[in-house]
């Protein structure tokens, strides 16, 4: 699916740079050793904000949940309607979620609970974007 291009900003630059190297990194608080996603300028759990770093994760996860989008507000995606939109939880920390269109999985036939691994697909401006594909357990 042709996703919109991505123009990295200061906060998200490390995430997108890593994606272009086909690596998945997630923001981590050094002080409380807790991952957070989406990224933020401060740790959401530390009262004093915490010191943040970017931590590479395994790129393995599970399909936690999904819906089927029939009426998408994003113009570039409307030609692909209906499409799966799943939530993936990371094996490194099941509290961390990422979205996926689950390329290759038929619409509304999503195997909730199945194992997935990260792949990287180009968006409209060439920026690589993390996506997920189902793998054998």
């Amino acid at each position: 699916m042709a996703k919109q291009g991505v123009e990295p900003d200061a906060l998200s630059q490390p995430f997108w740079d890593a994606a272009n190297e086909r690596r998945l990194v997630i923001q981590n608080c050094v002080d409380c050793d807790r991952l957070q996603h989406p990224p933020s300028n401060t740790c959401r759990d530390c009262d004093d904000g915490g010191e943040l770093e970017w931590k590479q994760v395994s790129g393995r996860g599970r399909i936690y949940n999904y819906g089927v989008v029939h009426d998408c507000p994003v113009r570039l995606l409307q030609q692909d309607q209906p499409f799966n939109l799943a939530v993936i939880t990371l094996d490194d920390d099941p509290g961390i979620q990422m979205y996926s269109h689950l390329p290759g999985v038929p619409v509304d036939e999503v195997p909730v609970g199945a194992a997935v691994e990260v792949i990287f697909e180009p968006s409209a401006n060439g920026q690589l974007v993390p996506e997920w594909r189902v793998i054998a357990d």
């Binding site: 123009e7 900003d9 989008v69 994003v74």
Partner: peptide, 23 residues
């Protein structure tokens, strides 16, 4: 932004996949 060809990197992390408001 939803009508554009590209979006900024931080909102892209949540909006790139195109879920509508009720998703």
């Amino acid at each position: 932004a939803n009508a554009g060809d590209a979006i900024p990197g931080t909102p892209a992390i949540t909006q790139l996949w195109g879920g509508p408001a009720s998703y």
